[in-house]
Design a protein around this nucleic acid. Structure first.
Length: 225
DNA sequence: CCAGACGTTGTT
DNA sequence: GTCTGG
DNA sequence: CCAGACGTTGTT
DNA sequence: GTCTGG
């Protein structure tokens, strides 16, 4: 799964993707579901960054309570799912991240890990977005696609987010030129030998905590394993 | 036909 | 135990 | 994902 | 909106 991530280095989206970061972007070390975060979408032949809320709301939803259930979407059956298939065809997006968190252990003895890429600061995550009409306004929401874990993640989790290679970002975002059959080839586990994982402080579990110390390695507390 | 679901993960 | 909020 | 709430009435 | 279950 992927239910917490960090995006603190906005400059990498300019360097690696040519997308201008939003001017008022704050560095974030603990982005949680139901919060607003930047998302990259096609715009005027190029790509743009836009703030959206994490937790997808399909256009047909009667209220927004479904959002917290749709923070992730399994990649394999995307085409058949009523909640996702419309967005899969027309509204694919990339969630810019620098790394994501996963936890191992049971409640009360959770150990969080921060996972990053070895070769790059930018970790582009594959996602979908939707537009939901409230009585007052249009609400833009997104979800992060998951796949099977690679050998790095599988010891602690059964799923991991889909990470796109920079050269695949264009194909993922091109809904007009790249049909779902082709796009689905991108929804695979990222190579484990290009990723790394470090144990971090459990205070990342608290959504109100958001500072650079959250991604700093700590000594593994072996009694937790 | 109408009513109700539409989802993921982890844990048991 | 289970749901909600972030 | 984790953390925190989970409730009502009356009084200030 | 569309599919499934009854």
């Amino acid at each position: 799964m992927c239910a917490r991530y960090a995006f603190f280095n906005g400059k990498v989206v300019a360097d690696d993707l040519g997308v201008t970061p939003l001017p008022d972007l704050e560095p974030r070390y603990n982005i949680a579901p139901m919060q607003t975060a930047p998302v990259i979408v096609p715009s005027d032949g190029g790509w743009d960054m836009e703030m959206m809320r994490w937790g997808l709301i399909p256009s047909w939803a009667k209220d927004e309570t479904i959002a917290q259930k749709l923070i992730n979407a399994r990649g394999e059956p995307l085409r058949e799912k009523p909640s996702f298939r419309a967005a899969y065809k027309r509204r694919r997006c990339v969630i810019p991240a620098n790394g994501f968190y996963e936890w191992s252990g049971k409640r009360g003895s959770k150990q969080p890990f921060f996972i990053t890429l070895r070769g790059s600061d930018l970790m582009p995550l594959a996602g979908l977005w939707e537009e939901w009409e409230t009585p007052e306004a249009l609400l833009h929401t997104f979800t992060i696609i998951t796949t099977e874990p690679n050998e790095l993640i599988s010891p602690i989790h059964t799923r991991m987010p889909v990470i796109l290679a920079p050269e695949d970002v264009a194909r993922w975002l091109d809904s007009d030129g790249v049909p779902v059959e082709e796009a689905s080839q991108l929804l695979v586990p990222y190579p484990a030998d290009e990723m790394q994982m470090t144990a971090v402080h459990p205070e990342v579990g608290r959504v109100v905590i958001d500072h650079p110390g959250l991604i700093e390695p700590i000594e593994k507390q072996t009694e937790l394993f």
